[in-house]
Design a protein around this nucleic acid. Structure first.
Lengths: 66, 66
DNA sequence: ACCAAATGTAAAACTTACTTTACATATTGT
DNA sequence: ACAATATGTAAAGTAAGTTTTACATTTGGT
């Protein structure tokens, strides 16, 4: 699964720590999702989408391997 | 988190087992998500949305407690 | 009423998300 | 060049998702 978190963060000028604080997770959680080390829960995806004012589908996309 | 899986399933006339088969998970996984026993991964949410031809946000919605 | 299919749960085992702590590297401003 | 902030990653621990097996209950058709 791909994601556009890094780009969305840049557009809102948020650091990983800022973003983590906003949605109540650790900075490492954001970093790990961003770098594809793990797949977030749907609750987390919805919260990220909420912060970025986008849909989950705009931020996360399936890949062949999923 | 609320979800509309039961309704979407009804609209497509799919049993829990049918749906499970389509996205490659067990029937219990579908049942557990549907009855709110647990929150699916974002990959699973995207696959469900794909089957229902809707966005993840149309199928899953945050609640206050999330 | 009977049978088949669908649904709700539950326990054990396994896998993966997430936290905390910690450190190393990179980037940016002055 | 220096200091501060941001990012990448790793290990250990805890919490949670998912599978498999199994059984009970409900629903629908005839």
């Amino acid at each position: 699964m791909k994601n556009r978190i890094k780009v969305e963060r840049a557009e809102k000028d948020l650091s990983q720590a800022d973003l983590a604080g906003r949605i109540g997770v650790s900075r490492q959680t954001i970093n790990s999702i961003e770098t594809g080390r793990y797949v977030p829960s749907t609750i987390l995806a919805l919260k990220l989408a909420q912060v970025f004012e986008k849909t989950v589908n705009e931020i996360f996309q399936l890949e062949e391997t999923d």
